[in-house]
């Protein structure tokens, strides 16, 4: 039984991990905790839905189209909105992303109404596969695999490509990056785009499990954000770990202690961990210079 629970936790953790990864990526680049992440992902998922249902496009085309849309949305958020902020302090940027989130929520609700839709994907929700003695649905398996694949891709991007180097350099020291000829504005915009794409994948993975409606990403966003904080925003590996830990603990708690209060377990852990390690489990604590 416990194996099954852990498996469920890993599935949930996969989605939280993608959201956490997306948030951490933009946070490292621009000190902005992008609260709009969830709604951006939700909106991109709707785009996929529209392509599938209304235009009858094949799944992979819709998938790709949705990701493209997500990328552009990320660029838009950064270039058109965040860049224009006159006074980019923490609170203001936070509110801007919250505002964008609310805006997208309203827009999606207006356009598509709050009925729940079904996103058809080519993986079955009911057929199961046996894996290491545990039973897992095709969909859940696909979720875990896709998530891991994406995380590995991001890792490869950052570690081995020129773009990844530029992103890391810009994150660590924007001025130094500029004087080396790195087009920092473009790089940060691209980072937002990539982060939005990651979020969109999370959304598309989630939609078949829950349903597609404007509210679908709110809880994953919070949990993903919480996971990022748990793992320490500064460390990408850390946030992924945090997400899986969160998923598993939540799943175990839900079964052994109480399903009703499952959701707040996430925040309880975080508050406790943050009390002992204010930068998260794996975050590096940069001493503030006054």
């Amino acid at each position: 039984m416990i194996g099954q629970l852990i498996m469920t936790g890993i599935v949930a953790g996969s989605i939280y991990a993608l959201v956490a990864l997306a948030m951490s990526l933009t946070y490292k680049s621009s000190e902005v905790a992008n609260f709009a992440q969830g709604e951006m992902a939700m909106f991109s998922t709707y785009v996929a839905f529209v392509m599938l249902a209304t235009y009858q496009l094949p799944f992979w085309v819709a998938f790709g189209g949705s990701l493209l849309f997500a990328f552009l949305l990320g660029l838009f958020l950064h270039l058109a909105i965040i860049r224009r902020a006159k006074d980019p302090n923490v609170l203001n940027l936070l509110i801007i992303t919250l505002g964008f989130q609310v805006f997208l929520y309203g827009l999606a609700g207006w356009k598509w109404g709050s009925e729940q839709r079904v996103l058809k994907i080519p993986v079955s929700q009911t057929e199961t596969v046996e894996f290491a003695g545990l039973i897992i649905s095709q969909l859940n398996l696909a979720t875990i695999l896709v998530a891991i694949l994406l995380m590995i891709s991001v890792y490869i991007l950052l570690r081995f490509t020129k773009l990844g180097l530029a992103i890391k350099a810009t994150q660590q020291n924007e001025t130094a990056a500029k004087i080396n000829g790195i087009p920092t504005r473009r790089i940060v915009a691209i980072t937002f785009g990539i982060s939005s794409v990651i979020g969109a994948v999370a959304g598309i993975l989630m939609a078949p499990i829950t349903t597609l409606d404007p509210n679908m990403m709110i809880e994953p966003l919070l949990k993903g954000f919480a996971a990022a904080v748990l793992g320490g925003f500064n460390s990408l590996a850390g946030v992924v770990c945090g997400a899986f830990i969160l998923g598993i603990v939540e799943s175990l708690f839900g079964f052994y202690i109480s399903t009703e209060f499952k959701s707040i377990v996430a925040f309880l852990i975080i508050v406790i961990v943050l009390y002992f390690k204010p930068s998260g489990l794996f975050g590096t604590h940069y001493t503030r210079k006054v």
């Binding site: 006159k86 801007i96 505002g99 964008f100 309203g106 827009l107 598509w112 109404g113």
Partner: peptide, 28 residues
């Protein structure tokens, strides 16, 4: 014509989000 009529109350959020963003961008 473009959206859904049942979702119209959600326009509330559209305005709110827009207002917040515009205020912060142009008048901190």
């Amino acid at each position: 014509h473009y959206m859904s009529i049942s979702g119209l109350p959600n326009i509330n959020f559209v305005f709110m989000g827009l207002t917040v963003i515009l205020i912060i961008l142009f008048e901190p």
